[in-house]
Write a protein that binds this DNA or RNA. Structure first.
Lengths: 340, 340
DNA sequence: CCGGTAAGTGGGAGCGCTCCCATCCGTGGG
DNA sequence: CCCACGGATGGGAGCGCTCCCACTTACCGG
């Protein structure tokens, strides 16, 4: 470092070459109005000739903005969600920023050192806003950013009431739809393979399950609930437990597709036919989903819309710095395939 | 944007509160020597009291450095390599930067718009150097960056002679080792499932195959070479072709583990025993590898070392701006499991 | 007792840009 | 023919920091 790249021309040099003032060149570079067309062309020629590129540090310093936003992943996101979720969010966020001059920066926060460094980076003004991939309950990052007054949007939430803007899928609603569908299909002994109970998203999906039972007059039985950790293996194990406890089970709602896939295997191993003996519905439908056999009926999370919405909210907060946090819940969609 | 976060204190304000000059505060903030301990403590107290965080734009502007590097992925990397490769590289790069004040920024370049934006970002001085994930032959990005005088290190190379610093695995050597191992095991009709012939990495692995044959006195036969695209499915197809052409085949070297996995399936379908009838060796051994049945003998790419080396070279270039590009080839390792 | 040296410190001079106001020029109406 | 007005333009005043040099002070040896 400390090295200077050679001959990076400055605004002033462009102005000199074009025979105009600094202000005019700045206006041309920033595509601002109020420059005569002939002047604009002269300046553009000078810019091209010198290969001028604006110094972004100077622009930031003078303009009080960075024209960049960060999308932060924690170590946990990194493994837990695997590629499809991550890819889809990143792509939709990227797409949503295409028409802006904003550069998207992905950053990985794996340790306290890295968190600290990132906070200094963000508070230091290198980004105008931060998007947080799903955060864990104990993650101090959202509040650190909020306290620093940085526009921040989270994907998902850590609890029922967040004091940070977030976008989330309608987890409860999606689960409710799934279970309602099972009930309408005449199933009445419906097991649940839930996620880790300390995760809010898992709580919501479980709540949706309960909410669906009530109007149908079916009683909630906690023996029908088994907890998993969103992994395929945990789904397999949970399904086995469930069958042992309730051989009469005629349907299962799994809080993730991976767990549903594990459940499918366990059911096959137990000689149950799907969906004849036991109907199965999953949750997520990340694209491209690894196809199950038979193809899984599931609740689709609107990832593309989530990414897009996060960007919209972030840009709005960057623009206006609203007083209140906003919470957006996006609808899920029940995708009927062959397991229910 | 255009918004100002409230009350961000400046160096000057800290200096005033601590009753010292700007220079002294700067020295404390940057952990520079030449400040009396008592003074240092006073200043640190003032910093804490005001919650001072350095303005990085100002620092960049005055200090001619960004304290950040970018790791660029193109759309192609994104899909082609999937998670394990990507994850391991990112982690090792991250680890290698832990002890520096350098922030790692992952950026995704999917279109010309995004490429242009990134180049402006990089040339604008927001990063001190760039790491490029594997690049394709036609990718103009490396040369754009090189021309801009930005320290740049590529993972892999686009051709035999690159005018950009790169780090690569010894693809030819790894392939040679694999095939030599097969020959030593008494196999002499060894098929190859190669990668796309327009990719240099595929050429190298194929070259290694040929180089191993010669000293063993085995003649190269092009009918033993089938081309794949690194996907499991293409490996399956290639294996079928190979068996049709050469029923007497007694070994296969696949230029990737995915293709080897496909080959394994095809062999099983054809009723061949592995390794008794046909030995199989793959290439990559990305962790965590999806286990094959039987466990695959393969050539391990030293991803961790590659990431670490890339960072070392980049930091060196940032420091000294050497005249010549450097090319580092890291050794692979033949991992013997059950298929050969 | 004094010059000499080193350690510690203060602050001027930018870094290259944006913002904004003063200025200039051309035009149209009175 | 003069003045007022608005669009186009020039450039001063910073933005908050680092770099570096000048300055102060304390302490050393002669």
């Amino acid at each position: 470092m400390g090295r200077q790249r050679p001959g990076t021309p400055t605004l002033e040099e462009v102005a000199a070459l074009a025979g105009v003032g600094r202000g005019t060149v700045s206006r041309v570079v920033n595509n601002a109005a109020g420059v005569r067309d002939s002047t604009r062309r002269t300046v553009q020629r000078a810019i091209a000739e010198l290969g001028y590129v604006p110094n972004l540090a100077a622009r930031s310093l003078a303009g009080h903005r960075a024209d960049a936003v960060a999308l932060v992943m924690t170590e946990t996101d990194w493994r837990l969600f695997g590629e499809p979720f991550f890819t889809e969010i990143v792509h939709s966020v990227g797409d949503a920023l295409t028409d802006t001059p904003v550069q998207l920066l992905l950053t990985l926060v794996r340790s306290d050192t890295e968190r600290q460094r990132f906070v200094e980076y963000a508070r230091g003004g290198r980004v105008d806003g931060v998007l947080l991939m799903s955060v864990h309950a104990e993650d101090p990052l959202p509040d650190m950013l909020a306290k620093a007054g940085l526009p921040t949007v989270m994907l998902g939430r850590r609890s029922g009431d967040e004091s940070v803007t977030y976008v989330d899928a309608d987890n409860a609603g999606g689960a409710r739809d799934a279970v309602t569908h099972l009930l309408k299909g005449g199933r009445d002994t419906i097991g649940v393979i839930g996620g880790p109970p300390d995760m809010y998203v898992a709580q919501c999906r479980l709540r949706g399950y309960r909410e669906a039972l009530e109007p149908a007059g079916v009683e909630f039985r906690s023996s029908l609930v088994v907890e998993g950790d969103f992994s395929e293996e945990s789904g397999h194990r949970a399904m086995r437990d469930l069958l042992a406890r309730h051989p009469e089970l005629d349907a299962v709602f799994a809080a993730s597709d991976s767990m549903a896939a594990g459940a499918l295997n366990a059911l096959r191993a137990a000689g149950r036919r799907v969906p004849e003996d036991v109907a199965v519905i999953g949750f997520d439908d990340f694209q491209p989903a690894r196809p199950t056999d038979p193809p899984l009926t599931t609740v689709r999370q609107p990832l593309e819309a989530i990414g897009r919405t996060m960007v919209r909210l972030l840009l709005e907060e960057m623009e206006e710095s609203p007083a209140a946090w906003r919470h957006v819940i996006l609808p899920t969609e029940l995708v009927l395939r062959d397991t229910a």
